[in-house]
């Protein structure tokens, strides 16, 4: 690979146990890195605090979806059965929120679910099929039983040698360099 064309993406450190990466994450946080992440085969309990992450905002997407669903449902039913084409059906009122409720309720849940899912995709920037991490063969173990920590080159505190030393000395990890294509 031509090193002139490749600019560094960051440094990838590999760990064997959950406790090791947990500790390393706390050190990274305390060292003041911002452009870094931890890659684990399953979510590790407490890792958000260890990394210093804020609470996930997915819930707002859910709320917006749900509100839209309920409001759309009620309005649609009122418009269709009362306003646009009122028909005498079974001697029942032309509109009441009672009979409109089940459908509005289902629409609330449906749109909440869409909001949640697509909100999560949006926040996580998925789908994202290209990722420099995938170029590392070792990284495939991140979905099996290994734990990785990557500090990206775009981090203002990043320095190729200093960061490498930080990871090997302080975090006791095997470190490799990642490049962007």
């Amino acid at each position: 690979m031509n090193s002139n064309r490749s600019k560094p993406h960051g440094l990838l450190a590999e760990f064997h146990t959950a406790a090791d990466i947990f500790e390393a994450a706390m050190r990274c946080r305390d060292a003041g890195f911002t452009q870094w992440d931890v890659y684990t085969p399953f979510p590790i309990h407490g890792m958000d605090e260890a990394m210093g992450l804020r609470k996930s905002p997915v819930g707002w997407f859910t709320f917006c979806g749900g509100f839209t669903g309920f409001f759309t449902g009620m309005t649609m039913i009122w418009y269709m059965n009362k306003f646009d084409y009122p028909l005498v059906v079974g001697g029942k009122p032309l509109f009441t929120p009672l009979y409109a409720f089940p459908v509005s309720y289902e629409m609330t849940i449906l749109l909440s679910a869409f909001g949640t899912l697509f909100g999560m995709f949006f926040l996580n920037q998925l789908p994202k099929f290209y990722n420099p991490l995938f170029k590392n063969e070792r990284f495939k173990k991140s979905t099996d039983d290994r734990f990785f920590l990557c500090i990206e080159a775009t981090d203002p505190k990043f320095g190729m040698d200093a960061t490498r030393t930080f990871l090997t000395e302080k975090c006791h990890a095997a470190v490799v360099e990642l490049v962007e294509d």
Partner: peptide, 19 residues
């Protein structure tokens, strides 16, 4: 029936009362 049980269960408004 003025309050027809058949009408209120039709999902597509195929059976309704006229005026």
């Amino acid at each position: 029936c003025e309050a027809a049980p058949c009408e209120s269960v039709c999902p597509v408004n195929a059976t309704v009362h006229d005026e």
